[in-house]
Write a protein that binds this DNA or RNA. Structure first.
Length: 454
RNA sequence: GGCCCGGUGGCAGAGUGGCUAUGCAGAGGACUGCAAAUCCUUGUACGUCGGUUCGAUUCCGGCCCGGGCCUCCA
């Protein structure tokens, strides 16, 4: 099965041909850790987790690198406010981030480098760029000289003139060219920094990804992924640094970018206070629901994240799990269906893939068979879904009352007795009592099963 | 101003030059003591104006509307 992906470099869907089929290399930009990850941070994590799962299925060896940015001026600001080190600022958000991403079904990447661990490599690259005439030192800064790269701007399709015309910020006086960007900047005594050939300072934003991808994936690699908003300037500048430093024609062969997430129809913003953090959402929803809602739309399209969307994701997952629960007795080994593989292989069409899962669930409900069940489980696994035991899926969560499982079972037995004696008033009373406590009953052909209803 | 995306039925959301998306919600039915779950049936679509075509929601162009980026941002 051939994989096609949309390449931002060409703005076209292309056949994926790895640089080295025996080892596919993928890099995704991770978060800056100064706060809990919001749902917008989670989207690329989930989307490219599916990509990594797919690549692992298609190729013998995959290295997936997802970095953590733990040095940045927002972090510095937090540290200053609290009077603590940046390590102390980033420790907790990093821990929570890892925990939350795991909770929404994202497998840990093969490498999860943190920027502060690669300062030496960043300095080395910066020195080399100066030697090659692509960067220069000015007033304690090191800047990348954009005019030194003939084809700068290829990813974002921007030329130097556009950049200067569109500039909203005043050009720093020490820049040789208005489009030049910072690779290293000086730190004062209150700001974290490292010793460098240009004095005490800290790296610019873009150089970290150039250095870390080089470290783990080499000078060129297959896929570089991230959010749409990173195309410019972040990825454009990474490309400039890496290519000029290593003298390559490409940095990554394919660039993939996910669309924005809005919340309840509005752009997330701190001032409106309308951003959802994954951590908060997990208080209210299973991680899988959060994941499903992120995969319900195509990754390149904008996605509106809403409570209603989460609720629909929950209903949809209930349906899928119900099909598994209904066929509990069937043995099944996970097998990926061709239809799902084809959907995902077409530029990660997760909505289509999910619709295939629903079709399998329908088939299963209509005519239970082990093959379809195997397909459903195996295909869902490729999407990072349906990993729960169906019974656990329906029974977990908290009920309003103080009923435990044994108490519920006891009431079900009492109701069964009432039903046997045709005392339906009593039977319905017990059912209503349970429903009030958040427990819904289902009288199957054999026994009565129950589930927690939100 | 420059660059780039979209506009599909009540909602979400795929896709295709002529044939059912899928899910949720709605209506009717089957099953059930009644429900639930499940199954069956079912209504409402492709922004607008032109063009290409035997035929366009699908290709091309104009227009309208919405969104993103233009050095904080997934």
């Amino acid at each position: 099965m051939s994989l096609k992906i949309h390449n931002t470099l060409t703005r076209k869907k292309e056949l994926f041909v790895p640089l080295d089929p025996s080892h596919v290399r993928l890099y995704a930009c991770g978060p800056t850790v100064y706060d809990h990850a919001h749902i917008g941070n989670a989207r690329p994590v989930v989307v490219f987790d599916v990509l990594a799962r797919l690549l692992r299925r298609l190729y013998p060896r995959v290295t997936y690198v997802r970095n953590i940015t733990d040095i940045d001026d927002k972090i510095n600001e937090r540290a200053r406010e609290r009077g603590v080190s940046i390590a102390e600022v980033t420790e907790e958000p990093t821990r929570i981030y890892r925990q939350d991403m795991l909770a929404i079904g994202a497998l840990p990447p093969d490498q999860e480098p943190r920027a502060t661990e690669f300062i030496a490599q960043m300095i080395a690259m910066t020195e080399r760029l100066i030697e090659k005439g692509h960067a220069y030192e000015a007033e304690g800064h090191v800047l990348f000289n954009v005019p030194s790269m003939a084809d700068y701007g290829g990813l974002s399709r921007r030329n130097r003139k556009d950049l200067i015309d569109g500039a909203r910020v005043e050009v720093a006086p020490y820049k040789r060219d208005p489009a030049d960007f910072v690779m290293w900047k000086p730190s004062d005594d209150d700001t974290p920094g490292w010793d460098s050939p240009w004095g005490y300072g800290r790296p610019g934003w873009h150089i970290e990804c150039s250095a870390m991808s080089r470290e783990y994936l080499g000078e060129t690699f297959d896929i570089h992924a991230g959010g749409l908003d990173l195309i410019f300037p972040h990825h454009e500048n990474e490309i400039a640094q890496s290519r000029c430093c290593f003298g390559t024609d490409i940095m990554a062969k394919y660039w993939m970018h996910n669309g924005y997430v809005t919340v309840e129809g509005e752009k997330m913003s701190k001032s409106l206070g309308n951003f959802y953090t994954v951590h908060d959402l997990l208080e209210e929803w299973p991680g899988e629901v959060i994941r499903y809602a992120l995969l319900a739309g195509h990754y390149r399209a904008p996605l509106d994240y809403s409570k209603q969307g989460l609720s629909e994701a929950k209903s949809a997952l209930d349906r899928l799990y119900q099909a598994l629960r209904n066929t509990d007795e069937l043995e099944s080994e996970p097998v990926v269906s061709d239809a799902v593989l084809a959907a995902l292989s077409d530029d990660l069409n997760t909505p289509l893939a999910i619709s295939r899962l629903h079709e399998m669930a329908s088939t299963l409900n209509k005519s239970p068979n082990a093959a379809t069940k195997s397909n459903l489980i195996g295909s869902a696994e490729l999407l990072g879904l349906l990993g729960d035991d169906p019974e656990d899926w329906f029974k977990r969560g908290s009920s309003d009352g103080d009923l435990d499982d044994a108490g519920i079972e006891a009431l079900i037995v009492a109701r069964a007795t009432a039903r046997q004696t045709k005392d339906f008033a009593e039977a319905d009373r017990i059912r209503d009592e349970l429903l009030t406590a958040g427990i819904a009953l289902e009288d199957g052909s054999g026994a009565t099963t129950w589930k927690r209803a939100r």
